[in-house]
């Protein structure tokens, strides 16, 4: 389930070749950063989450058996970290949340992107993950359900609820604070 080049890089990384591991990071860093940004809304947090993802992947490299795509394995590590990050974020004080939101405003590429990102951040984390996996990263409902470890029906329901809320937020029926 891995490309030939990727397989070589994985094998070399396992035997302690740092340059090979850097090669794996280069192959997947944009995908992981993008996921982390969609889930966190902060460029700085996305960087931390991406770094932590690769560090954890390195530690667990021996456990990767090749049964799934390496990118999917990596994606799952990142997704779990992002969902956990949300649990930590909820415990932040209001001042910290405002600081993070200001950071998101500073880094969003344009007004529409900023608006979408703020609307995404208003969704419960698992609904947000459902949107990110299917709408942004193009997974099927079945693939996204597997990635999130839930039944496909649950995934579909989360997606339905998320779309309802996003439509309301983005069409102005509900205000984004």
């Amino acid at each position: 389930m891995v490309t030939e080049d990727e397989g070589i890089l994985i094998a070399r990384s396992r035997s302690g070749d740092w340059e090979a591991f850097a090669g794996l990071i280069r192959m997947h860093q944009r995908m992981i950063h993008s996921l982390a940004y969609r889930m966190s809304g902060s460029a700085a947090d996305a960087e931390d989450l991406a770094q932590e993802t690769f560090i954890r992947a390195y530690r667990a490299l021996d456990s990767y058996r090749g049964g799934a795509k390496f990118s999917s394995w990596l994606y799952r590590i990142a997704l779990n970290l992002c969902l956990r990050w949300r649990r930590l974020e909820i415990r932040r004080g209001a001042a910290d949340r405002e600081w993070a939101r200001a950071g998101a405003r500073d880094t969003a590429p344009d007004a529409r992107s900023e608006r979408v990102q703020e609307a995404l951040l208003m969704l419960p984390p698992k609904q947000r993950a459902a949107v990110v996996l299917t709408v942004f990263d193009g997974m099927s409902h079945s693939e996204a359900a597997t990635m999130l470890g839930c039944p496909e029906a649950t995934l579909s329901w989360r997606l339905f609820a998320a779309r309802q809320r996003l439509a309301s937020l983005l069409s102005g029926h509900e205000s984004i604070p």
Partner: peptide, 21 residues
């Protein structure tokens, strides 16, 4: 939603990130 972009990062960032990790 798909038209919303993520922040651009400079090329330096992408070349240095693997080294930092």
């Amino acid at each position: 939603l798909r038209e919303a972009r993520v922040p651009e990062r400079p090329d330096d960032y992408w070349s240095e990130f693997p080294s930092r990790v």
